[in-house]
């Protein structure tokens, strides 16, 4: 069997979970030995070139592009992991969920003090905004959830290596205790 193939994506998130992934420091070299990266901002591969084993999802879905991206990941990855608060619960972006889309757009593009051209962008190239920010598991089947904002580097490392090696993941209380 070849190396497991990992793909990653950051959707409605802040890239913090990817930063946390990079935060495993020199273990990144071990990781590279263990896995092969496919579609991911880390290696800048833009499209899936093969079937992957693990999809690492950061961020929830706030627009049509996120939704398609997520569905594409589901199609191309055997296992999907929701990584971090935004993917799991919607996170900060979902603070807009209590506000109608119309109000959000008007505030951002019409009423905001620093706006010059008062128009709501409608270019066909732009993704379409969804009525609210969705956690990933409401759209596709998610296999695992790694909590945290961001999840600690060790947790990401432990989780990925457990998945790859098939060893049981040790989850001491301190790792997911946040208060």
């Amino acid at each position: 069997m070849g190396k497991p193939v990992v793909a990653t994506v950051s959707m409605a998130g802040c890239f913090g979970c990817h930063m946390s992934l990079l935060d495993i420091d020199d273990k990144i070299l071990q990781l590279i030995d263990l896995v092969e990266f496919n579609k991911s901002p880390i290696d800048d591969i833009k499209k899936f070139t093969k079937q992957c084993d693990i999809g690492f999802i950061e961020g929830g879905c706030c627009n049509s592009e996120n939704v398609e991206n997520l569905m594409n990941f589901r199609k191309n990855c055997k296992i999907l992991i929701s990584v971090g608060e935004c993917a799991i619960m919607g996170g900060l972006p979902s603070l807009r969920n209590g506000i109608p889309v119309k109000e959000c757009l008007e505030e951002a593009y019409l009423n905001c003090l620093t706006v010059d051209d008062k128009i709501i962008p409608n270019d066909e190239e732009l993704p379409m905004i969804t009525d609210k920010v969705y956690p990933c598991h409401e759209i596709v089947k998610i296999d695992y959830f790694l909590p945290g904002c961001p999840p600690r580097a060790e947790l990401i490392w432990e989780a990925l290596s457990a998945l790859i090696t098939g060893k049981k993941l040790e989850l001491p209380y301190e790792v997911f205790k946040y208060d």
Binding site: I120, N122, T130, D131, Y134
Partner: peptide
């Protein structure tokens, strides 16, 4: 998905 983007599409034309 169609329903989710309906409102935005209406507002943005």
């Amino acid at each position: 998905k169609d329903k989710a983007v309906e409102e935005y599409c209406r507002i943005a034309g």
